[in-house]
């Protein structure tokens, strides 16, 4: 019992302490060696919020990630169905893993030439399309396990009971797939939110997402501003994690 409590405390501390330290650093001002904590605290980094660039960076990142997550969630839902029921399901499955084997940044190098040709580099739309191309196969992978023979039979049954394609989707497929849809949206949002290499390359330094901004601060050795940007960076994922826990885990538990 005691050992379990200790292990639980270690687990909570391993997650909570870095976050608490990040928050502390974002209020730091002077941090000379060999001090463990910053010597002075100030609101200077957070005062950066007044700087309209930081707020717009936050909302730009949110907009890009939300768009990518939405497009991937919707398109992968319908396309994965055709892949799952096709005879070449396994071949498509292998192909879906290729962007991850090559890594997004290598894919970005491959895309870049074509993006320059159609003048999409350095644009928000270009970044959204590039991230979509990376995240789409991942969405397909998430959905593939959802489509199975049992679901196919349920769908067919709904049709013979008189349901057209729309009614079957609304009354049968959507209620049964809600968890998979939420899971896909959250996962793709996170992929897009923390994407750096591809965004930096296709965005050509003009599209500054929050993740790109964090790396810029780190490169400038501005640890306090980097911590502040990181605090902004972890808010949406933490909110998503809360929603995920509330709507997915709770729904699964109550079934």
């Amino acid at each position: 019992m005691m050992a379990r409590k200790i292990l639980q405390s270690i687990f909570i501390a391993s997650i909570g302490l870095p976050l608490a330290f990040l928050l502390l650093l974002s209020f730091g001002r002077r941090w000379p060696y060999p001090e463990i904590f910053p010597k002075e605290l100030s609101l200077a980094a957070w005062g950066f919020l007044d700087n309209s660039n930081m707020i717009s960076t936050f909302f730009l990142s949110l907009g890009i990630s939300f768009s990518v997550a939405l497009f991937v969630t919707l398109s992968a839902f319908f396309i994965s169905k055709h892949i799952a029921y096709s005879k070449k399901r396994n071949t498509f499955m292998v192909l879906a893993y290729i962007p991850y084997l090559l890594s997004p940044v290598v894919m970005a190098v491959i895309f870049q030439y074509y993006f320059i040709l159609v003048q999409l580099t350095g644009t928000t739309l270009g970044v959204i399309i590039a991230q979509f191309l990376i995240a789409f196969p991942f969405g397909v992978i998430i959905y593939l396990n959802f489509w199975n023979e049992n679901l196919k039979s349920i769908e067919e049954l709904s049709k013979t009971l008189g349901g057209n394609a729309f009614q079957t989707f609304v009354k049968v497929l959507y209620p049964l797939s809600k968890n998979a849809i939420l899971l896909c949206f959250f996962q793709v949002f996170l992929i897009s939110w923390f994407e750096y290499g591809l965004t930096n390359l296709i965005g050509s330094g003009k599209i500054k997402t929050l993740t790109v901004q964090v790396f810029n601060f780190v490169n400038e050795a501005n640890i306090f501003y980097a911590s502040f940007a990181c605090c902004l960076l972890v808010i949406p994922p933490m909110l998503l994690m809360y929603l995920n826990k509330r709507f997915i885990f709770f729904a699964e538990k109550s079934e």
Binding site: T160, L161, G162
Partner: peptide
């Protein structure tokens, strides 16, 4: 179409 046949499987 199946939904218009009034045949249940």
């Amino acid at each position: 179409k199946p939904q218009r046949r009034n045949i249940v499987y």
